[in-house]
């Protein structure tokens, strides 16, 4: 059932060029996804043509700016406003810029690095120490 999905890593300066190329090839703009990592953001731009999905990924530091692609794909403006409002990213030259009024949330930029708690992956369990039964005893005595 699985649909093959490849993600190409690109630099943020390449974004507009690649978008223009894909537009010329007849790709449709699907979405911008964003995930908050420990100290950076991970943006995924998705394009589709004839049920074939192409993904491009940019890793972005919090204070960096990205160019808007709404000049090429006019429907990108909503996604870019969303990036600004929910993640606190700076997007340059959006065609319709809401200036932070698209989403009015109780806390500002709820998905920014400060507000997102990263889940801790399970650590490999430390080897069982030999004095295990004794330490258990001590604990029960303490109780």
């Amino acid at each position: 059932m699985s649909e093959p999905q490849h993600i190409t890593l690109i630099d943020k300066d390449q974004l507009v060029g690649i978008s223009a190329e894909l537009f010329a090839e007849g790709y449709r703009f699907v979405q911008v996804g964003c995930a908050t990592l420990e100290n950076s953001y991970e943006l995924t731009y998705c394009y589709d043509k004839a049920y074939h999905l192409r993904n491009f990924r940019i890793t972005l530091l919090p204070d960096e700016e990205i160019p808007s692609i709404s000049v090429i794909y006019p429907n990108a403006f909503l996604y870019e406003n969303e990036l600004h409002d929910l993640f606190g990213l700076n997007v340059r030259n959006i065609s319709i810029d809401y200036n932070g009024t698209l989403y009015r949330t109780a806390i500002k930029t709820p998905f920014s690095i400060e507000n997102v708690k990263q889940p801790v992956p399970p650590q490999p369990k430390p080897e069982v120490v030999k004095e295990h039964p004794e330490s258990v005893k001590e604990k029960t005595e303490e109780l």
Binding site: G33, A35, P119, V120, P121
Partner: peptide, 10 residues
């Protein structure tokens, strides 16, 4: 990332 809580859902 391998924990029971997802890192991101969109």
């Amino acid at each position: 990332n391998g924990s029971r809580f997802l890192q991101r859902f969109r």
